[in-house]
Design a protein around this nucleic acid. Structure first.
Length: 341
DNA sequence: AACCCTGGCAACCGCACCTTC
DNA sequence: GGAAGGTGCGGTTGCCAGGGT
């Protein structure tokens, strides 16, 4: 059985408070106090409001010495610092900022400070990732080319460029850094013929970018891209992989037959806070669109700290069910490039 | 000018905890 | 001890203003 409502919702007014209501509430509380019972307060005053609503109005708006807007740099840093340490405990954070209410701080964080902070962190992170990634990938590339067999992303079913969002499992998400790897696969003669000269230079460097989105974890792109049936070495395609990181949600796009596919990538990169995606699944001849729900996990402070660097390439090396292997002699080149703005 | 989109913010909702009886 | 009522809190919703098309 549910709990009894605190008031008769049918007989209470809702929505914005009028100046008259504000004046009544303010005058009464300044003269008599709350009486320790918010539920009974509106009846005493003659307000058709819920007691909880009166309390909220008083605490967030009417009580003396309330400050609205105009957060200082110092306040920003206090909020950020406390948020990093204790998360979304707004009442505790508000207690450290005289004149500020938890609701005000919460709104300020959600609408401005979060974006401001993330923008700064991304900039810093990209700068760091650019150098560390190049070093790491150079090292891995050497190892990669000497491996006897390799797992190859593959989909011989795909006859046209395909882009779709991939989702990294949450348990992996924190391991994946903002970086990307491109793997260009061996193309069959048929493929090359079918695609004109586009694939003649299949060892060419395919550029790659990082895409950010919000709120959507990723599934292992490899499992999504790997072949679902027995495959032949002649049907490997260039693979374009994009992985973005951590708890900043990500989208991945890959399996581009040619550079024309980059237009799909561009679709993903219109902004750092991309909220939706679109592409074309030519296997099913359908348009792929989607929307990432706003993340509600900002309480997880990991979302605001740097995650260890794990490249897409490392994921590529993990054994994958249904993946294919190739002799290194039949094989191709892995190139990577990050495009860090 | 009309419409759409987005950001900001006040207010609401529901749950958990606390207090009282 | 536990039921009922009150309070506090964080997440979410919905309205509105402003900017863009």
């Amino acid at each position: 059985m549910g709990r009894a409502p605190c008031c008769d919702k049918a007989n209470v007014k809702r929505g914005p408070w009028s100046p008259e209501e504000d004046a009544k509430l303010k005058a009464y509380i300044e003269q008599y106090g709350t009486g320790g019972n918010w539920i009974a307060l509106p009846q005493k005053i003659g307000l058709r409001r819920c007691g909880k609503s009166c309390r909220l109005r008083w605490l967030n708006y009417l009580r003396p010495n309330i400050k609205h807007g105009g957060f200082s740099e110092e306040e920003d840093s206090i909020i950020c610092s406390l948020y990093m340490n204790i998360g979304s405990r707004w009442s505790i954070i508000a207690a450290q900022l005289p004149g500020r209410t938890d609701n005000d701080i919460k709104n300020y964080w959600n609408t401005k400070l979060k974006k401001k902070l993330l923008g700064k962190q991304r900039k810093d992170q990209r700068t760091r990732a650019a150098s560390s990634l190049r070093q790491e990938m150079n090292r891995k590339k050497e190892n990669f080319m000497t491996t006897e067999a390799i797992h190859v992303l593959h989909s011989h079913q795909l006859q046209q460029p395909l882009a779709f969002p991939a989702v990294i499992p949450q348990q992996q998400a924190h391991d994946v850094e903002d970086q990307a790897v491109i793997i260009a696969g061996k193309l069959s003669a048929d493929d090359q013929q079918a695609n004109g000269n586009s694939f003649n230079n299949h060892n060419s460097l395919y550029s790659c970018d990082i895409s950010f989105g919000e709120g959507q974890a990723c599934e292992n792109p490899l499992s999504m891209a790997s072949c679902s049936q027995q495959c032949s070495p002649s049907s490997y395609y260039p693979i374009h992989g994009v992985i973005a990181n951590s708890n900043i949600p990500c989208y991945s796009s890959f399996l581009f037959h040619e550079l024309n596919g980059m237009e799909y990538i561009n679709n993903f990169h219109q902004s750092d806070t991309l909220q939706s995606f679109s592409g074309t699944d030519t296997v099913n001849r359908s348009t792929i669109t989607g929307t990432s729900p706003e993340s509600t996990s900002w309480g997880d402070t990991n979302s605001l700290v740097y995650s260890p660097i794990v490249s897409c390439y490392e994921i590529c090396q993990q054994p994958i069910q249904q993946s294919c292997t190739l002799e290194k002699s039949s094989y191709f080149r892995m190139q990577q490039e990050t495009v860090l703005q």
